[in-house]
Design a protein around this nucleic acid. Structure first.
Lengths: 350, 350
DNA sequence: ATTTTTTCCGTTACCGTGCACGAATCGTAA
DNA sequence: TTACGATTCGTGCACGGTAACGGAAAAAAT
């Protein structure tokens, strides 16, 4: 308890017969301290269990420190917007400890714009960086620069298998696919399922849905080896085509009644679903976008699996702040967020 | 941004032609300030957008402030233990803002012990109190005393319909029953379900399972009006009887294959379930106790609905701290936690 | 008008750290 | 021994706010 008066630098100075200036030098590993004094101070610090007073420290130190958060520009209704509240909470947390959080946005389909955002962040000489590694190569280059300058960084969403990162906050992607399959089939015998996929020209971006699909396929293979998985491709840039494709597919495969989608755009198929309420499709998608939630509420979508992007960013900023201010290395390096199962009956509380 | 130098009380003193002492008095509503000066200071504070520096404040203020958390003694493996990590996180948060969190425990079946804990807390002259209102009457009396002393309090878990509380953090209990029914039936036609209930001599305690049962019954009535709900009573204090009761019931009701339980003790029936793996019961319970989780992993329990008791306490302590330190009144007074649906495939990430 | 009381306000000494400045001490070479 | 640079260390102010102390001004009482 705090019954005993808190130990201060002055106490240590007195105990060692040195001055607070010297104690301060030891505490910050600054040069100009003899080995003997250094050892003496360290010993007393340990014996007395000294803990610095952060208020006093923050008050006396007037360097502006900033954490850079580099992420795709949040378009309204899209995935990255979900991380917003988490960033705000992180900002508040960091602010209480004297650190500003600044965001650097880029176009998630434009590698150059990503590079620009990174450089912009670097120019601020940040005390730490949070980013999802959207473009593999550019991220590697950027992270190397950070390492040169001793700037810690934390990955969110996905991570790179480099080992310089301080922490990672994301979802267990493979398992999310596995979970998706278990919900879709509800563990009851299943012969055919449809997976709606998105046709896209690759840009060297990391694509978490690949991993997720593996988990899905594995679950199906393990539990229902005879189940057939149909792949249906749609193109979000040609919304007018989608309905036709779906109509066509489900007309020729009338026995398929379970539908999954591995990205956040399950809402794309709701118009189709709404035209076939009698079919009672079982539909599982990902992420609690507003459009997805409304499909959930109306009963078109059965379940959504949500990954708390906000918690990811909050966790990342908090971990970075703790490291910068207190020197605390995160006890867990790879942090997996819970996968929330949302149905129409619990969605409104998320 | 913080480009412009932060406004300090010295700035305000200069602007108003008064001294920092007076400004300080105004800021804390202390007496001894003329109306004229008061108004002048308030105006300048507003004009310049002054925000106090909490570090300096915390540093200069040497009063020990404490938040009292009054809750049942956490027995290992029982419900209240789940709130522990949340209290710890809250403690850390509060600590960063110069507030200590102290717990006061009592026996959850003993009203006198609850009263003693309350008085003990009161004797510390706390700056705020967090408590689940376990005993209605005693809580009312206690809360009245708090109000007399202007001590804010926050309810967790359940709330009383008094209106003196600062905030409430809990789960939507009725809806949790509704959700439970929807998961148990998976929206497919159902004729019979079993609800395992606990026989207990009432002690004037609040019993959230009543409300939950209502939600459950309503869902069933709305969706499957012909479904029969069997009530099976067991007594946790006579564990040796439980198996016999269950065997007996399910022998005479062989068509019942869906089981729900509204308290946190679904684990009580796993021995029975394990002896009948061929029946493939669909089982839904509440709360992620260690014992429940292991039943989930082994496949005996289908789903658990968890209510994040830790988040409740964290939220409560945070809200109280924000109120005490910054005077912030919570933007949302009644805060409902998400109801997490846990299955064997996502449970390990909670 | 003078004294007493009350109201109002400025001054000042902190709180615990950070850091710049300059002084003391040490080692080494002339 | 003296001189001189390099180390090592102590001193003191600053950070922004708090609150006790006591003095000045205003109001009330004599």
């Amino acid at each position: 308890m705090d019954k005993t008066q808190k130990i201060t630098i002055k106490d240590i100075a007195r105990q060692t017969g040195l001055s607070k200036g010297t104690v301060d030098r030891v505490l910050h590993n600054r040069e100009g301290v003899s080995k003997k004094s250094y050892a003496k101070v360290m010993k007393v610090i340990k014996d007395l269990g000294y803990e610095p007073n952060i208020y006093a420290s923050l008050l006396a130190k007037h360097t502006e420190r900033v954490i850079a958060v580099i992420l795709p520009r949040c378009k309204s209704g899209e995935f990255w917007e979900l991380s917003d509240p988490g960033i705000e909470r992180g900002k508040e947390f960091a602010h209480n400890l004297g650190i500003n959080v600044r965001r650097f946005n880029y176009d998630q389909y434009d590698e150059n714009s990503f590079r620009r955002a990174c450089n912009e962040a670097l120019a601020m000489d940040p005390a730490g960086v949070v980013l999802p590694p959207m473009f593999r190569n550019e991220t590697m280059i950027f992270v190397d620069k950070l390492r040169d300058r001793d700037i810690p960084h934390v990955y969110v969403d996905t991570k790179l298998e480099t080992n310089g990162y301080l922490a990672y906050f994301g979802m267990p992607i493979y398992q999310s696919g596995y979970l998706c399959a278990s919900i879709l089939t509800d563990d009851t015998p299943t012969n055919e399922v449809a997976v709606i996929r998105i046709q896209r020209d690759k840009h060297g971006q990391s694509d978490p849905t690949i991993n997720r699909r593996e988990g899905f396929n594995d679950y199906i293979a393990e539990h229902f080896p005879n189940c057939r998985i149909h792949n249906v491709f749609i193109n979000p840039n040609r919304p007018e085509e989608i309905d036709g494709i779906l109509e066509e597919f489900f007309r020729s495969n009338p026995r398929v009644s379970q539908i999954a989608m591995f990205n956040s755009r399950i809402y794309l198929i709701t118009p189709f679903l709404e035209r076939h309420p009698e079919k009672k499709y079982r539909v599982v998608g990902f992420d609690n976008l507003a459009a997805n939630l409304s499909a959930l509420r109306s009963g078109m979508v059965t379940s959504l699996i949500a990954q708390r992007p906000d918690e990811q960013f909050y966790g990342a900023i908090k971990a970075l702040t703790d490291f910068i201010v207190f020197g605390k290395v995160p006890s867990i390096r790879d942090n997996f967020m819970p996968m929330d199962i949302l149905t129409r009956y619990n969605a409104e509380y998320y």
